[in-house]
Simulated assay, not measured.
Amino acid sequence: MSEEAGPDESMEEEELADEERSTSPACDLRSWLAGAPLLWRQSSYGAWLPNTLAAKTGNFAQQLQGGSDYVRKYAQHAGA
């Protein structure tokens, strides 16, 4: 029969595994590679992520103006 590890022993093993994972050079490199573009984007553009919605559509007031013009012209064309 094999003996199971007691609660103290299994916690010690988990803590050692956590320490080994947090000091991995590969993990540090991946974190830096993933974080560098985000830091650059924040410093360059003032935003953490790209705002593609605003880039494609403009501001909300212009959207409302264009939409109301479209509906008005359609109503005139359709004779409503």
Rank of each mutant, 00 (worst) to 15 (best):
E15K: 04
A75C: 09
A34W: 05
P7A: 01
G79V: 10
R41M: 10
G67P: 03
Y74I: 14
E14G: 01
A36Q: 10
R30L: 07
K56A: 05
L64I: 15
P7S: 02
R72P: 01
G58F: 07
G35W: 09
G6S: 12
E12S: 03
T52R: 07
E14V: 01
L39D: 10
S24F: 15
A54L: 11
N59L: 06
R30H: 05
D28Y: 09
G79S: 08
A75Q: 15
V71T: 09
Y70A: 02
K73Y: 03
Q42K: 00
E20A: 08
R21E: 13
S43C: 08
S31W: 08
L38F: 09
E19S: 00
S10V: 12
E15D: 06
A61F: 13
Y45Q: 02
D69I: 04
D18L: 13
G67F: 02
T52C: 14
L64Y: 08
G67C: 03
H77F: 10
W48E: 04
F60L: 05
E12T: 02
L49R: 00
E13W: 06
S22I: 04
G46A: 07
S44K: 04
A55D: 09
L39P: 00
A26D: 13
L16W: 07
N51C: 06
L38G: 03
Y70W: 14
T52K: 10
H77D: 07
L49A: 08
S22E: 15
D18N: 11
G6I: 05
Q63T: 05
D8R: 01
Q76V: 00
A54I: 09
L33C: 03
A75P: 05
Q76D: 15
M11G: 00
P25E: 11
